[in-house]
Design a protein around this nucleic acid. Structure first.
Lengths: 205, 205
DNA sequence: ACCTGAACACCGTTCAAGT
DNA sequence: ACCTGAACACCGTTCAAGT
């Protein structure tokens, strides 16, 4: 039907095209289904073609991660705020299927720069921390945001698979306060850390 | 040499034997090299034999995780202490190659009970938090410990592979205070959270 | 009860060769 | 510069069959 009549100049793909394809495969299949072959299929290309654009899968994943955590809102936030920046990072991760896991691995491998981290450092400095303490505070918040969101997103996946039974599916925190949502739990834990950071500012004076 | 002369009664393996084999494969090859086939080889058994003992790889990993985080020191600690319990959990994770990653996935899938979490809840209650706040505090600490250690252990791996260059290999915190070790950074972040928890105890009174 | 042997449906990565 | 086609060395899981 289309083999002989095709007169197209054979469309060539760019790096951003590959990232686009990877992100749509991720959205549809999750990180477990994000294979190089599926990405290639999405682009109507052979798997080996991907290796001209990226040296390996991790590098492609790092580019996907950068897309997730980098955006317009970076310049908007005028006054640096710990809670707002941490919450915005969480929202970014939640906006993509398995976002926390993808970002976590790129970050740990040193393949990703997290813009939110610098904003957290600035906010901590503005709160009165020393340079060294501000770095520690930023890393603590980043670990908390990614850890919490990773856990939350993996649980969604586990629920779909049915791997965990109903009793385990409820986190212990939910038993203590049955009305709390993940958002509330996240905010409560975040408030704890931010409060600790404020104390450090006072103590370090 | 040994095929015809073998008179052994064909040794059968138990569940703990499989976990033993998995842990030694993990120690030698890391989580990336922890395959069902390598575990089977370690036991001198066919891969399919593993599926009589465990329904799938995740269940085996959960049993490995439980070994890592459960131990004798659980009953020893008389007075519940937030800092000591969090530090002890970190030490457990560090004691095994890729320990944080293995435990993290089992935990997120709801396949692992973390004894340290209950001890953290108890410590938070003893510090004066409400029931709901103590659960949040425990989860916050668990996320921090696992997130920090996971990041640290992945970086070790990245350094071995040589994936990250030297400039990225140094965390930003290290640039600010060049003498700080991972242990110091961990302790500093932990102190931040514990301080926040103490504030919550005062505020909730 | 515990394990073998063989298969199924996949993986990431490499590489000569084409245009 | 960008991609194909084919191969290499792996995966997790299933299942009939053996003892």
């Amino acid at each position: 039907m289309n083999a002989a009549s095709a007169d197209q100049p054979a469309p060539r793909r760019s790096k951003p095209d590959v990232v686009d394809a990877a992100m749509s495969v991720l959205a549809e299949n999750g990180i477990a289904g994000l294979s190089m072959r599926r990405i290639a299929d999405e682009l109507d290309v052979q798997v080996s073609a991907l290796y001209w654009h990226f040296p390996n899968k991790q590098a492609l994943l790092a580019a996907v991660s950068a897309r997730m955590v980098t955006g317009e809102s970076d310049a908007e936030s005028d006054a640096p705020d710990l809670t707002a920046t941490a919450t915005a990072l969480r929202d970014r991760l939640l906006a993509h299927r398995d976002g926390a896991e993808v970002v976590s691995s790129s970050l740990a491998l040193g393949l990703l720069d997290l813009p939110a981290r610098q904003r957290l450092v600035d906010a901590a400095l503005a709160a009165g921390l020393t340079d060294a303490a501000a770095e520690v505070a930023a890393d603590t918040l980043v670990h908390y945001v990614i850890g919490f969101t990773f856990h939350e997103q993996q649980r969604v996946h586990a629920a779909v698979i049915g791997a965990a039974d109903a009793s385990v599916d409820l986190s212990p925190a939910r038993l203590a306060s049955p009305d709390a949502s993940p958002d509330d739990d996240f905010a409560a834990g975040l408030a704890l850390i931010v409060s600790g950071i404020r104390s450090a500012a006072v103590a370090g004076r």
